[in-house]
Amino acid sequence: MYYKETIRQMYDIGIGSLPIVFIISIFIGAVTAQQFYYQLTGTAIPTYYIGYIVRDMMIIELAATITCLVLAGKVGSNMAAEIGGMRQKEHIDAMEIMGVNTSSYLILPKIIGAVFAIPVLVCIAAIVGIVGGYLASVPTGLYTEFDYVKGLRSFFNQRYVVMMFAKATVFAYLITTVSCYQGYFVKGGSVELGQASTRAVVLSCVAILIADYIIAVVLTS
């Protein structure tokens, strides 16, 4: 039962969020490439550095942070509203009276689902962002494919990938726990449910940004 619920959560979070993650990351990659081309034009820094910058920015920071901030809005508010609605409709009380451990039945599958699905989404976001950088620069003639690919293959540090996955996992955990907590302990009516949903998004975002800083400090020192 819990296994099925976990798979359902993985599907909802992972497959359900793919379009938005795809759209956001392709544009972030494109804007990064375009913006750095503009900044570096006329300087002594070689053009191929743009590929290197896009790659590292996507892997180290943007893929994990921006994707998870967006998911805090999409997935976090959904979880808070779903669990909060169940609390208000007495579904949670009904399960508890039946003897169901509601936190483990309702919340654990969401946490496990997110902790597995979100790092995959972040990885996809990083790849799509790099492709976005390519599409924004090579076909438009800003610089050559050779330059972009050379940049992508320069100064690569595998540690950054580890950092990306570490961030994605921690952010996934934060989004689900903060949002589920807000929904699980909601009191009152539909106004309070709306407020809980908003609080879930805001607090998840703040938690992600704080965790982002802490991970950056820990993993780069």
Binding site: K89, E90, H91, D93, A94, I97, M98, G99
Partner: peptide, 17 residues
């Protein structure tokens, strides 16, 4: 023991739940 007892309890909610 509580879990066992829960198996012996049924409840109809006001809003049906």
């Amino acid at each position: 023991a509580l879990r066992e007892l829960r198996m012996e309890v049924g409840m109809l909610f006001q809003g049906n739940a």
